[in-house]
Simulated scan of single mutants.
Amino acid sequence: MAFEAPTRLVRALGESVREADDGWLDALPQLLETAVSEGGLTVERLQLPGGRSSLVALVRDAAGTPAALKLAPPGSRPAAEAAALAHWEGHGAARLLSPADQAASGMLLERLHADMSVRSLPEAKSMLEAAGALRRLWVEPPAFPFENVAERTGRQAEAMRACLTPGDPVEPLVTEALAARDELLAAPPQERLLHGTFRQSKVLSAERLPWLAVGPDPVVGECAFDLARLVRDRVEDVVGSPSGSSITRRRVKRLAESLDVDATRLRGWTLFRAVESGVRARRVGRVADSELLLEFAAWL
């Protein structure tokens, strides 16, 4: 079939530099063709602009039922995503329609409305709906070797340190973020299965329920880690506001209260995740994104 990988996906894979993904993009046309043929699927179109870590094709199965076929490179841990989706069984997230153990060759998913996320709602309403969707995902993890928060943030911490140079102006902020991580990991609360990369754009309109989450990069750990990414949603609006610092503090307080999460721990994980994202954006040349994230982090 005629095929051209979405520009957004090509750019993101170029930034990630994961050895596990070497050659995956070149093999993607054949991977798609094989998944479609073996699944008896009919492709309607690719979902564009698509994600940064996967290709999604809108398809119909042999019975004509609409679905979404997702192909993800090995570095994006498709097996873990499929295991989490299978465990949630459609409660709060898109339903996995294909066997979880076949995730490496593609995941067939319940089709949602990709053009309608909770981010399209007014901010107060979008935060409420997103928080409600996230709460439903926090369950006991299944017997699968998911990465845990200590492991994931350990890799990130090493990458942050490696990016620093003597006299780097972001060094104090990085030092604070790393210290916050160490303190948080010293006495973690109860662990749950987490979405891992949750934000408003990951909650889409659906037929079965008003809103369902998509695109997890699941991890096992405390709920505050998951919620921390939501705190900085619409960061460009927050940083652009004359009262951005107070908005940031109110968000931490309100989200912590609404989901019964310790506000101090939420603040710490929000700091770490914002600084880590900011340093990573700087490393790959996304200067504007980096500046937004690091300014936001400085207010925490």
Results as ranks from 00 to 15, higher is better:
residue 6 P to Y: 03
residue 7 T to K: 10
residue 8 R to P: 11
residue 9 L to K: 00
residue 13 L to K: 05
residue 14 G to T: 06
residue 15 E to N: 11
residue 25 L to K: 10
residue 26 D to F: 12
residue 26 D to K: 10
residue 27 A to P: 08
residue 27 A to D: 15
residue 30 Q to Y: 09
residue 32 L to A: 09
residue 37 S to I: 04
residue 41 L to C: 10
residue 62 A to F: 07
residue 62 A to K: 09
residue 69 L to C: 05
residue 70 K to I: 00
residue 74 P to E: 11
residue 74 P to M: 03
residue 78 P to G: 12
residue 83 A to C: 06
residue 89 E to M: 11
residue 94 A to C: 04
residue 98 S to C: 05
residue 101 D to W: 10
residue 101 D to R: 12
residue 101 D to A: 07
residue 105 S to F: 07
residue 105 S to H: 11
residue 113 H to Y: 06
residue 117 S to D: 15
residue 123 E to F: 07
residue 125 K to F: 12
residue 126 S to G: 15
residue 129 E to H: 10
residue 135 R to S: 14
residue 136 R to S: 07
residue 138 W to G: 00
residue 138 W to Y: 01
residue 139 V to E: 02
residue 139 V to G: 01
residue 139 V to M: 13
residue 142 P to E: 07
residue 144 F to N: 08
residue 153 T to C: 13
residue 154 G to D: 02
residue 155 R to S: 06
residue 167 G to P: 12
residue 168 D to Y: 09
residue 169 P to N: 13
residue 187 A to K: 15
residue 187 A to M: 13
residue 194 L to C: 07
residue 202 K to M: 12
residue 203 V to I: 11
residue 208 R to H: 09
residue 209 L to Y: 04
residue 210 P to F: 14
residue 215 G to R: 06
residue 217 D to W: 11
residue 217 D to R: 08
residue 222 E to T: 13
residue 227 L to K: 02
residue 228 A to T: 08
residue 230 L to I: 09
residue 231 V to R: 00
residue 232 R to N: 02
residue 237 D to H: 12
residue 238 V to D: 10
residue 241 S to V: 10
residue 247 I to W: 10
residue 249 R to I: 01
residue 253 K to M: 13
residue 253 K to F: 09
residue 257 E to M: 08
residue 261 V to D: 04
residue 262 D to W: 08
residue 265 R to W: 13
residue 279 V to T: 01
residue 281 A to S: 15
residue 285 G to Q: 06
residue 286 R to P: 05
residue 291 E to Q: 12
residue 291 E to P: 03
residue 291 E to M: 05
residue 292 L to K: 02
residue 293 L to G: 00
residue 295 E to L: 12
residue 296 F to G: 00
residue 296 F to M: 02
residue 296 F to W: 12
residue 297 A to S: 15
residue 297 A to V: 03
